Simulated assay, not measured.
Amino acid sequence: MARAKGQASRLEEALRADGVRITRQRTALLKVLAESEDHPDANELHSRAREIDSTMSLATVYRTLAALEQQGLVHRHAFEGASARFEIADARHHDHLIDIEKGEIIEFRSAEIEKLQEEIADRYGYEIVSHRLELYCRPKKRPGG
């Protein structure tokens, strides 16, 4: 909970520094965003924020997310076949496994995959600046099931 509070404050400070007015609605949205452990889309964020502040508008959600994304504080993920989903930019890089049947998104880290990507880029004479790995999967069928 303390981590979420710190993240919400950091986002608020960044918006303020960018000249964005911090309203009750934005404070509610930043709280929801900071506490989200999943990858909500704008409608989900709007719905959750309305539980805190019933005056929350979807336009405020979109404008705030756009400002945070422009500053690199929020990542927009356009996973195949789904609306854009958002997460706070985490200092620790991670990749995503997407369950195409349930829509569940699982974050994972793999030192082996990171090392292999570096080796491949190096082999071709490149340095990785940024990357995303998204694995689209379905649960394995069990024998006899």
Rank of each mutant, 00 (worst) to 15 (best):
L58W: 00
V129G: 06
S83K: 02
H94A: 08
L97D: 07
S54Q: 09
H75N: 10
P139W: 03
F79P: 00
F79Y: 14
E119H: 11
A84F: 09
E119Q: 07
L97H: 07
R132N: 07
E12H: 07
L45N: 12
A84R: 13
E44V: 01
G6F: 00
E80F: 06
R48W: 14
I22T: 04
A42G: 07
L133Y: 00
R109I: 14
T23E: 01
Y62N: 14
E101R: 13
V61R: 12
L135S: 00
L30I: 03
P143T: 02
A66I: 08
D99R: 10
H77C: 07
A14L: 12
P40V: 14
E44K: 06
R48Q: 15
E80L: 03
E114N: 14
Q70G: 08
A89D: 00
T64W: 11
T60Y: 02
L29M: 06
A84S: 04
H39V: 15
E69T: 06
K115R: 12
V129P: 01
A89C: 10
F86Q: 03
A42F: 15
T23Q: 00
R76I: 01
H131N: 11
I22V: 06
T55H: 00
V20D: 12
M56F: 08
K102L: 12
A59T: 04
R123M: 12
I105F: 04
A78G: 13
F79S: 11
A78L: 06
E69W: 12
G145R: 11
R21S: 14
L30D: 00
V129R: 09
E104G: 05
E51F: 01
D18F: 00
D95E: 08
S54D: 13
H77D: 03
H77W: 14
G19Q: 11
E37T: 11
R142V: 04
E104C: 10
H93S: 14
D122G: 12
A49I: 09
A49V: 10
A89S: 04
A121Y: 04
S9M: 13
H39S: 11
A84D: 11
H96R: 00
R76K: 07
A91C: 05
I100E: 08
T60E: 10
S83A: 02
A4G: 12
R85F: 04
V129E: 01
R63T: 00
E114Y: 04
D41T: 02
R21W: 09
I98L: 05
S36W: 02
A66L: 12
D122F: 14
A34Y: 03
D122E: 15
G19L: 13
I88F: 04
R24L: 05
